[in-house]
Design a protein around this nucleic acid. Structure first.
Lengths: 340, 340
DNA sequence: GAAAGCATTTAGATCGATCTAAGTGGAAGG
DNA sequence: CCTTCCACTTAGATCGATCTAAATGCTTTC
């Protein structure tokens, strides 16, 4: 019967209070570990909570107190392992602070992103970690300021008024180009794909800058299809160029995966006939053969940094905006050799 | 100044009501699209909402109404692309119903899972999609029943009293074994790894059953390290057997990735010197060379099915438990040949 | 013995929505 | 002209916590 009752109506703090012969206020103090309440009383209330199977109702508490203990995370594409790792870093840090993560997938669609932001505000999130969809208007940052909602941008940015955690693509690109140049490569292509956003532009600019600074042709930039399945068969695009490249830098691990398959299909041996450097050092890079030489961008660490920034921002909303760029590291493996 | 005010205190339904010269009750009716309210009044209230930038407070509503519009998803490992795809399916279906997903990572740790479940109950989730951590006690299902919380198990199950969406591993294993046998293989190993749970056992049993039914040795079951990075170098375990296998079925895409690297390192050509069949047909299978022959288990579809089951369960809590197993499909690619 | 000080405890208002039950005003029916 | 009905509107209680301001019971001090 007590079991039946429990199912019907949730056990409330008032129930606990009654069972422990104290007032609702005292029970609430015990809940919040206030030093005001006496040792014996505290024990009695805690016992009552256990007896009745009390579960704290954060939603009710939030009505009085500003904090919901929920933060939102909006990413453009969940099925991309890169974002999954990012999310994993976010979840870990947020979870450790006792907060909880509302997950949403924008599909890189601005309208959907707007809807998701509204939905999250309706749920009273304490803040949001946002990887802005491509083509997001910079004006969004003004709206966010109006809302007074803490937001941290990850990987892509639309405004420097907001916190941002990203990758030092310029340096990463230099590492890739320097390494290839040191092997003797001069005709280096940059294989890009996907929608255009700040991280895309930074990588392209980084490539141009790194190539120009060595007086190499910085315009062998080739667009590939967005979907992994279509990249392999498009890999001949690499050779439809006035100058046939001897090395390719890949925009991310998806392009790298696609191209390494496609080049293999053309009878080329990677690391001998053509060299490949990838960005985004996800698990695949180490697992493939030849192992992929790759510029690691550390998605898990970025997720952790972003979560920490958001936690800080929630704690002190008037801090000036902070921008962190994570260092990249070139992992030299087996996919590069000298040009022939 | 109105901007300043807006930042200080959230715009409430009462503000909207006052601005539109109606009562709080009427404003609430407009919010919920009740047909009771007059056309002209409705327009006025809606205009007021827009003027003031009103945002619905779901948390407050939830206090009166039982629904929080939040569902939880607990997975054992976010960085595994398989679970990322699962999550993607869940998020899509749940998002389409206007609900929102609370994400958590149990790390396959039972204590952590317990903590996460409590936290989700504190947030008043309407239900949870749970991939139970390995070693979860079946008693958990009794607790869940006590709580009266709708739960759908995915991929692994601890009790048949709860809804479940999983994979028909037995058939999948038959498909793999039948195919290899049809090529002439008789010494087939099963390369497993990771913690033991229902899906693990089902795959092992499926393997034994499929092998025995053809009078083949069903006991070449070899455990590999959990981490991808360590599998490649452990691949010689395959040949420390009394009978050297000519084909290997891989527990999942992680084992497949690791082994295909390790075998390559030993100078073996996959598809010629040794055949490989993988489970979990994630993007890698198509991208690798040789392309991996693989039994697809459809993580996105499973996520969608689980989400739909949870939505149904929330709508009608007294439905008898439903158990769905998703069909597997063998994708024949390039990683298998005849034994030599 | 009254006053002051301290440690605990508590009544009641409050957060922002929903819901019930009742109220309002005008048109239609007798 | 009064009643009934209809379409619409609203006051006030309610959900489960928190928080303020005040009360309570003891001990200590003068």
């Amino acid at each position: 019967m007590s079991l039946e009752e429990r199912k019907k109506t949730r056990v409330t703090l008032l129930d606990v209070a009654r069972h422990a012969n104290v007032s609702r206020a005292t029970a609430s103090l015990v809940l919040r570990k206030s030093p005001l309440v006496g040792t014996e009383t505290r024990a009695r209330v805690e016992q009552a909570m256990r007896d009745l199977g009390y579960v704290y109702n954060i939603g009710a508490a939030r009505l009085r107190v500003e904090r919901s203990q929920i933060i939102g995370a909006i990413v453009p594409n969940l099925t991309n392992p890169f974002f999954a790792e990012l999310l994993s870093g976010i979840e870990e840090v947020i979870g450790a602070t006792g907060k909880v993560v509302l997950l949403a997938n924008s599909g890189d669609n601005v309208d959907r992103q707007e809807m998701l932001l509204r939905r999250m505000r309706e749920h009273g999130v304490d803040g949001v970690i946002l990887c802005p969809a491509a083509r997001t208007e910079p004006a969004l940052s003004d709206h966010i300021a109006d809302w007074g909602m803490p937001v941290v941008q990850v990987l892509r940015h639309i405004s420097l008024d907001l916190d941002y955690v990203g990758v030092d693509y310029a340096t990463g690109m230099h590492q890739a180009v320097d390494y290839l140049a040191s092997l003797g490569h001069e005709k280096i292509a940059f294989a890009v794909h996907g929608p255009v956003h700040s991280a895309y532009r930074e990588r392209v600019e980084g490539f141009r800058e790194a190539m120009s600074s060595r007086n190499l042709n910085s315009e062998i930039i080739i667009r590939f299809p967005t979907l992994l399945g279509e990249i392999a068969s498009a890999s001949r695009l690499l050779f439809d160029q006035p100058e046939r490249p001897t090395a390719v830098i890949c925009f991310n691990h998806i392009v790298a995966l696609g191209l390494s398959g496609g080049l293999h299909d053309q009878g080329l041996t990677i690391g001998r006939d053509i060299s490949l450097v990838s960005f985004d050092d996800v698990a695949d890079a180490e697992a493939m053969r030849p192992k992929l030489t790759s510029v690691s961008t550390g998605p898990v660490a970025i997720g952790e940094m972003a979560a920490q920034l958001l936690v800080d921002r929630i704690a002190s909303p008037h801090l000036p905006p902070r921008h962190l760029v994570n260092d990249t590291k070139l992992h030299i493996r087996q996919s590069c050799g000298r040009p022939n």
